[in-house]
Amino acid sequence: MTAAELSLGPVLFNWAPEVWRDFYFAIADEVAVDWVHLGEVVCSKRAPLLDKVWEPVVERLGAAGKRIVFDTPHLVVSPAERQALRALSARQDRMIEANDGGALALLGGRPHMIGPMVNCYNEGAMAWFAERGAVAICLPGELDSAAIATMAQAGRGLGVAVEVHAFGRVPLAISSRCNHARAHGLHKDGCQFVCGRDGDGLAVQTLDRQDFLAINGTQTLSHAVVCLLAELRDLVAAGVSRFRLSPQTIDMKAVVTLYRDVLDGRRDGVAARADLGRLVAGLPLANGFIHGREGLALVTA
């Protein structure tokens, strides 16, 4: 079972540059992930904030032997966003993950990855992506295990590594409207970067004060934390070769250790899930999508 790899998804939240930098330094120095995704994928206004810490992080990760993937934004509309995408895509020396149709267009004809915000729902779409140079595809979060198994099998024939989101709040929607700014009574253009106050997203509750969703700038995520620890071994058996862990403000080193231990057969998945429940302190775990249920469900049997 050692063939399966772990990837650390891009930090989705607006962490302060030095926090972002120190997080990746720690990943480089101490954490056993195979792939590290970098990039501000949610909001183009945030991207310049990372300018001064970007190169040191890339160097440190590279020196530690991590394979780095540069992720393109989820939504690309404005001239400035398109220009940034072209600049990122022009780097032939880098492995890039496409997160929208524009990136697909610019990366066609060279090896690249496909991110979970690009709709790959079936083997037909996968074949088209592979033909254009995709070498790995992180599937959309809402797929069930049957769809994943079908595509993992197709991926083997096409030479495409199939990856699934296995830990973290799962992205559910993206908008051109900034709901985070809106919640503070602000407009996107004058947002004061209020999203920086919420390292794991801003809590959205129902009128009954039931926990519901999380807001992260223009992105909406689940309140629950996806946990596929108990499903990992079945997914590996089905042909999934990579698992994505999405950074949150909790101890990610401990999260990675749990996933690695289960993949390597040192821990039982169900027992590890109980440990993860304690790590995420107070947040519910969920695995509903993979079981063909509503995403927030936690199927334990």
Binding site: E142, L172, A173, F289, R293, G295
Partner: peptide, 10 residues
């Protein structure tokens, strides 16, 4: 690109 309904209802 929206899974909000899916998250709550499947």
């Amino acid at each position: 690109r929206c899974a909000l309904s899916s998250y709550v209802t499947g």
